[in-house]
Design a binder for these strands. Structure first.
Length: 742
RNA sequence: GCGCGAUUAGCUCAGUUGGUAGAGCGCCCGUUUUACACACGGAUGGUCGCAGGUUCGAGCCCUGCAUCGCGCACCA
């Protein structure tokens, strides 16, 4: 190279060596941050964005402050940053809001586990001290997450960072709650709820996961005098039965309907009425259903229809609170076997079958859900709202998706979304945990009242701030973490104040969470935004899949198959990780994580590095190319081909098909630009005349600079670095260059 | 039970207005050719899950089936 490159001194030293991501990435991120261009206001101030440019905004799905980021986050952040950088280069007013989620139950249980190892419980500390511990943990976790987001190259506007539990978001939560309360959408009610005995809190229907387990289905009679046998997998609850329900058309049992029986079951007196109810299936079991209103959602509904009493036999710790001495205080599982034995001994057991059944588990704690009657706060999804044309929350959630105002990608999830809403029940929002937004409701006893009903002696106050006067105590419960997450698209923009940010950046252009949180998060954001703002929260929902290990298994602590993104970055660089997660992965598709793919793209990074070296070496030898040379026919053909590619990928970028764009750029850079155009250029550069060389060098330089721009959203670090090596780019960061196509 | 997705080269996966099968990795052969051995040139490799149908023509559309995975419901 020495003899033929007299101008070697012009070539930056580092370009002569292979690309080093490690040496480059940190330095480049600092340059970006220092420039202030992550902040759209500064882009306008410095003249890189027009003040009246079209806005483009995304909120980062706030990671839980329960630990560190994994490959799933890396995947999500990469895609969002691609869109953000692309749209910034288009000249739009681009805002990507960073933040973290307090993730109430998840974070609290994490800290409780740490305390457990230290040998004490949260009650030993008390609410205030415990919350200090959680805050400290959350802060540490937050700091890790933020540093990881920077490592990923995410061009987030850090000046607007938010936390779902900070003061501003707390104000938004209280404001939202108060409005819903005043509109009668939030109410307190006694219901059968999903109680998690392990986590000691209520959870919503969506926080339940199902697991198939083997169980015994027992068929028996309460006593010898009782005419009908019933079946159950949970005999221990049967002490709480107050009725037996049969289908009204079931001729086997019609003669008994309306009759009542007093018996002693397992040493406990019980009173059973036989009722008819359409919901009972004749074919299942004996066709007769023992009704346990206190411990089954469906039974509670039957009980309500027939005005049956409720007898609670199990408490919050999943232990028996009714029954003979031998049963009291026993765990449900122990009691189950004891009662089964009693039935056998008494000759009441008719059948015992092995069945598989789905049991309900709390997603976070793994505790077996115990349906219990409890007083909780709910959001009514079926109440007409005057301010919203008498539409219900359900309707407000359904409408924008069905009308196409909000597009969901891939579109098959639109049906999933609609089905979920149609089956939606009232949302239980209160949690018996300490970490989270405290419910903004206060109570005090009214001395003068003489009612015998306790609730009538209690004054209730709901407000954004605590009430004036003495004797008020705040509700002990906190809110479901998704309540504050639902406000995220606008609480981060200053709502309830009518800020400039809110006017400019809401609704967001797009939101990009994993498909597993479509109900938890996407649906709740639509609910809150439609109700509180009267508008959609975003125009497009792009649901991505799950990153799995090489065997297709979910990453989890128990499987011990976790891969730390930092290790991958250390080995291959962030750019390689980013584009390997994006290329060829369409919406809704899971990824089997493949280190080979990352490796392949790290080679691609080096390839671009070497392409640049070649172009640089040759352009620095001449200068005629830079003075409007006459373009040869052959070069024009290549420029036309490049332009056609840019047209094509720009269209695809606008359709959110960046996974195709990444592959096309890779293919063009390597197999068209390097393998063909550059190879063919070599001969001309050796033997061609001055004019042809000028045309060719212009073409090479133009193609390279177009490629660096087009690749920048995908591989921001290396492209920015290479861009900066050209003297003419000294003053301009690639990140705010114009996208190379209208 | 209802619904959804996947099934394409050894592996991971692209392939939307239906028109002669693609990429990466791996494997094999060759090349240290002056941007790059993190490279270059070349070779091998697929009845596009199965069975029908529509069509001049189907990986792509329709019907049925199989296997794997997922969601929802049920869970007496």
């Amino acid at each position: 190279m020495d003899s033929k490159t007299p101008n070697i001194n012009n070539i930056p030293e580092k370009l002569l060596k292979p690309y080093s991501a490690k040496e480059t990435e940190g330095r480049i991120y600092s340059a970006w941050e220092t420039s202030g261009f992550f902040n759209p206001d500064i882009c306008i101030e410095k003249g890189v964005t027009a003040p009246d440019a079209e806005p483009f905004s995304i909120v980062l799905p706030p990671p839980n402050v329960t630990g560190t980021l994994h490959l799933g986050h890396a995947f999500e952040d990469s895609m969002e940053d691609v869109l953000i950088r692309y749209n910034r280069m288009l000249g739009k007013k681009v805002l990507w809001v960073p933040g973290t989620d307090h993730a109430a139950i998840a974070t609290q249980s994490k800290v409780e586990k740490i305390l457990e190892k230290e040998g004490f419980r949260k009650t030993d500390l008390g609410r205030e001290e415990f919350l200090k511990r959680v805050d400290a943990f959350a802060q540490e976790s937050h700091d890790t997450i933020v540093s990881q987001l920077r490592l990923m190259g995410s061009s987030l506007d850090w000046s607007r960072e938010a936390f779902t539990l900070d003061a501003k978001r707390n104000f938004a939560v209280r404001t939202a709650f108060k409005k819903m309360y005043d509109d009668g959408l939030i109410y307190r009610g006694h219901r059968i709820v999903n109680w998690d005995p392990k986590g000691q809190t209520v959870i919503s229907d969506d926080e339940i996961v199902y697991e198939e387990r083997k169980a015994k289905l027992y068929t028996f009679k309460y006593s010898k005098d009782f005419p009908i046998a019933i079946s159950t997998t949970r005999p221990e609850t049967k002490i709480g039965d107050t009725a037996v329900a049969v289908n009204p058309t079931d001729e086997r049992y019609t003669e008994f309907i309306g009759k009542e029986y007093d018996m002693t079951f397992c040493g406990v007196p019980i009173h059973i009425k036989i009722v008819d109810d359409e919901s009972v299936e004749k074919e299942f079991g004996t066709g007769a259903l023992g009704v346990t209103p206190a411990h089954s959602q469906i039974d509670a509904e039957i009980a309500k229809r027939h005005n049956l009493p409720t007898v609670q036999v199990i408490n919050e710790f999943a232990k028996m609170i009714k029954g003979g001495e031998n049963l009291l205080g026993k765990k449900t599982t122990e009691a189950r076997e004891m009662i089964a034995q009693w039935l056998r001994d008494e000759g009441l057991m008719e059948k015992e079958e092995d069945v598989t059944q789905n049991i309900s588990l709390a997603e976070r704690s793994g505790g077996i859900i115990e349906p219990l009657p409890k007083l909780q706060w709910f959001i009514n999804v079926n109440k007409p709202i005057a301010e919203r044309e008498n539409k219900t929350l359900k309707e407000l959630m359904l409408e924008p998706v069905q009308s196409g105002k909000i597009a969901i990608l891939p579109d098959r999830f639109e049906n999933v979304y609609s089905n979920w809403i149609e089956n939606l029940r009232d949302w239980c929002i209160s949690r018996q945990i300490w970490y989270g937004h405290r419910i903004p409701v206060w109570y005090r006893t009214v001395e003068s009242a003489k009612s015998k009903v306790e609730s009538e002696n209690t004054e209730t106050y709901c407000g954004v701030e605590a009430p004036e006067g003495d004797g008020w105590t705040q509700d002990e419960d906190t809110l479901d973490t998704w309540f504050s997450s639902g406000l995220w698209t606008f609480s981060t923009l200053g709502w309830p104040e009518n800020t400039a940010d809110l006017k400019t950046y809401h609704p967001n252009a797009i939101v990009m969470p994993g498909y597993e949180i479509i109900f938890f998060w996407v649906a709740r954001m639509i609910l809150m935004s439609q109700y509180l703002i009267g508008d959609i929260p975003f125009k497009t929902v792009y649901l991505h899949g799950i990153v799995r290990d090489a065997n297709g298994k979910k990453f989890s602590k128990s499987a011990n198959n976790g891969i730390d993104p930092l290790e991958v970055i250390n080995q291959y660089g962030t750019d390689a990780l980013r584009i390997s997660l994006i290329a060829g992965v369409g919406p809704g598709n899971d990824i089997k994580f493949d280190l080979q793919k990352v490796k392949a793209y790290s080679k691609f990074a080096n390839k671009i590095w070497n392409i640049t070296r070649f172009v640089f070496e040759n352009t620095s030898k001449h200068d005629a190319w830079n003075k409007n040379p006459q373009i040869t026919e052959a070069d024009q053909k290549n420029l036309d081909e490049l332009n056609a590619l840019m047209q094509e990928i720009t269209k695809e970028m606008n359709e959110y098909k960046f996974y195709l764009v990444a592959e096309k750029l890779y293919h063009y850079a390597w197999h068209t630009f390097a393998d063909r155009i550059i190879e063919e250029a070599k001969t001309c550069l050796e033997t061609g005349n001055e004019a042809d060389c000028a045309s060719l060098l212009y073409t090479l330089h133009f193609t390279l600079s177009t490629l660096l721009k087009a690749l920048h959203p995908f591989m921001p670090f290396i492209t920015e670095e290479l861009w900066s090596l050209f003297p003419e780019n000294n003053q301009h960061l690639l990140m705010v260059e114009k996208w190379p196509c209208k």
